[in-house]
Design a protein around this nucleic acid. Structure first.
Lengths: 214, 214
DNA sequence: GTCAAATTCGAGTAACCACTCAATTTTTAT
DNA sequence: ATAAAAATTGAGTGGTTACTCGAATTTGAC
């Protein structure tokens, strides 16, 4: 309060009348730089987890100093959140499903796609479980993701039930949680024995059991 | 198996003829001490993971110095393996199922039991996913556990199929992997929202879908 | 070209890590 | 009681951690 000049931080290019700090914004290559940092952090966290991966590992991978890295992401926590957001972008997590596609086709297609993207499944599996440990900055992301996903599949199963296409006796709410659980769990087994586990097949089997043909 | 030197713990009082080092074996309270260390490590790894939990944390919890702890478990890795073995003991993992019980009853019963044991599900979920990260000493334990469990459930589903009690179209191998996956995955969701997730209910639902009534 | 903001980094910090070593204290078989 | 093994520990070892600070360099709007 005693230093009113420092309190003015919002940059409005029109309002440069008074004695403003005159922020200039990031330089041209800044965006690419941030992206390459996130990509490196993505790989490091996928391979070692959040606690097991260090900022130095990430900086080395990008080819910059750890200090410069902290200029872009002021804490390891911020970097993790950027990586999780990047995962959403890659997998289009949270994007509504194409209404032309059946639920089963959409799930199977996504499962097959994820299999081809190096590191996505490692990153998701490792960080998700790690996030339930004490004081993990990823917990909120994963709890919210689960709630959103369960709501989404609940809606899908309820719609199918209304058409009479849900197998009698199946509870849409538990089926939603179960589908997500099956997907998560089969990914863990796939990571340990990729040639022995048919992720898409297991998901297809489950959905064929739960939803009746049109 | 491959470390016979460490396996020499059984005291043979008869073989003290030559110039032997005259091992005396552990003292009376040693066994309890080891058990309390494993219990503390169990809690620490469940709450923080393997990489996130430190030997100092464990030593503090037991009330001994970190150096003394290392007298009982010469490395953090050894401590982890002891904790994983302890988990098997608690959950009776690897113990054959009571033949009087149906598969579904056994699974549901075990799921309900695990829910009541503090830390088991945290420990399992956190360490299992962490074990797929680089150079994690738990990987072998979990891969072998998955192979053993899949074989076990494959046998159970195959037996049911022979009785004509497997729903037509269900593949016993994929069903075995799927049952384990569902179980693992539902535990993760339960950890994040225990009051919203019915683990036993989801497992029961799945088995009711897959196996037909007698 | 000027000049301030954006970017970069070397050098620290204080804390923590798993683990070692040498020495002391405690137990227990004799 | 004695003596030797088992148990315990304080003090270190070399390493890593996330993060800070101050200063130098690079950029780009004017």
């Amino acid at each position: 309060m005693s230093t009113p000049s420092a309190a003015q931080s919002a940059a409005q290019p029109a309002a440069k009348s008074a004695a403003q700090p005159a922020r200039r914004g990031p330089y041209a290559k800044s965006r690419q730089r941030r992206e390459s940092i996130v990509a490196a952090a993505y790989a490091v966290f996928a391979a070692h987890g959040y606690r097991g991966g260090s900022l130095q590992d990430v900086a080395d991978k990008v080819g910059m100093s750890q200090t410069s890295l902290l200029h872009y992401f002021p804490s390891k926590r911020d970097l993790l959140l950027a990586v999780l957001h990047q995962r959403d972008t890659i997998t289009q997590d949270g994007t509504p499903r194409d209404p032309e596609q059946t639920l089963a086709d959409a799930v199977v297609r996504q499962a097959r796609f994820n299999e081809t993207v190096p590191g996505v499944i490692e990153l998701y599996t490792v960080l998700c479980a790690e996030s339930v440990t004490d004081n993990h900055p990823g917990l909120e992301y994963f709890t919210e993701r689960y709630e959103r996903l369960r709501r989404s599949y609940l809606r899908a199963f309820t719609a199918l039930a209304d058409e009479g296409r849900l197998r009698p006796g199946v509870d849409p709410g538990r089926a939603a949680a179960s589908l997500i659980a099956l997907w998560d769990g089969i990914q863990t087994q796939w990571l340990m024995a990729p040639e022995r586990i048919d992720m898409a097949g297991c998901l297809r089997d489950y959905l064929d059991l739960v939803v009746l043909p049109a």
